[in-house]
Amino acid sequence: MLREIRPAIVLLVGLTLITGLAYPLAMTGLADAFFPKQAAGSLIEKDGKVIGSALIGQEFKDDKYFHGRPSATTAPDPADASKTVPAPDNAANSGGSNLGPTSKALADRLKEDVDKLKAENPSQPVPADLVTTSASGLDPDISPEGALFQVPRVAKARGMSEDTLRQLVADNTSGRLIGIFGEPRVNVLALNLALDAAGQSRVH
């Protein structure tokens, strides 16, 4: 009997070592060697301190910064662990709201957000990505239109010219992958870091 099951045992052990140990170690080593920044999580540093990742959105509320997409992620309620509370861009709990097109809660939230943005920039139509959440709730990017829509508010808050901010958006816009895949996008954290740097250079 042992003679019959020995090949199966050897095959199981061999494949476990190859697929469970050798392959992951090899891929990790190759990633560290050829794509060290991506393998480490595409982290973004400022003054030697990690302040975020290019892959995960952050919530910006101050008028002097560009804002990202709404986020429907949640976290456990500190007062009642069986419930959840809103926690925008919570990387530990990626997910959408799952509210459908007939949801009154969704319709009310959209109307409130659209009205607020229209008051901010009444001369331009509100870009869809500024009021809709992504499936993950962690989208770090917005469309160039979403960034340009916010230029008047940021310019007013910072006392900067709108032309300067539009150029800053253009400088921080990434195009389609190899020219055909995806859509042009602006990483909000990178744009806000460039915005701070531009503001500091004006002061000096």
Rank of each mutant, 00 (worst) to 15 (best):
M1Q: 12
L2Y: 14
L2W: 15
R3F: 10
E4Y: 15
P7T: 08
V13D: 05
G14R: 11
T19C: 13
T19K: 08
G20S: 03
A22E: 02
Y23H: 07
P24L: 04
P24W: 02
P24D: 04
A26Y: 13
T28I: 14
G29Q: 01
A33N: 03
P36W: 06
K37C: 03
G41R: 06
I44G: 04
I44L: 07
I44P: 00
D47M: 03
D47I: 03
S53G: 06
G57L: 06
F60G: 03
K61V: 15
Y65K: 10
H67Y: 07
G68L: 00
S71V: 04
A72L: 01
A75K: 08
P76D: 08
D77R: 00
D77A: 00
P78N: 04
A79F: 13
D80E: 03
V85A: 00
V85M: 00
V85S: 01
P86F: 01
P88Q: 09
D89W: 14
N90Q: 09
G95W: 02
S103M: 06
S103H: 13
A105E: 13
A107E: 13
L110I: 15
L110Y: 05
E112F: 12
E112P: 08
V114L: 04
D115S: 15
L117C: 07
V126D: 07
P127Q: 08
D129F: 08
L130I: 01
T132W: 05
A135C: 09
S136H: 12
D139V: 06
D139N: 14
S143N: 05
G146Q: 02
F149D: 01
Q150Y: 02
Q150D: 10
V151I: 12
R153E: 04
V154H: 04
S161W: 12
E162W: 08
D163G: 14
L165T: 06
R166L: 10
R166Q: 13
Q167G: 15
L168C: 02
L168M: 07
L168D: 00
V169T: 13
N172F: 08
T173Q: 07
S174M: 05
S174Y: 08
G175R: 02
G175Y: 07
G175M: 02
R176G: 07
R176P: 03
L177A: 14
G179W: 05
G182S: 12
E183T: 15
P184M: 11
P184E: 05
R185V: 01
N187L: 04
A190C: 09
N192Y: 00
N192W: 04
A198E: 10
Q200Y: 02
S201L: 06
S201V: 11
V203N: 10
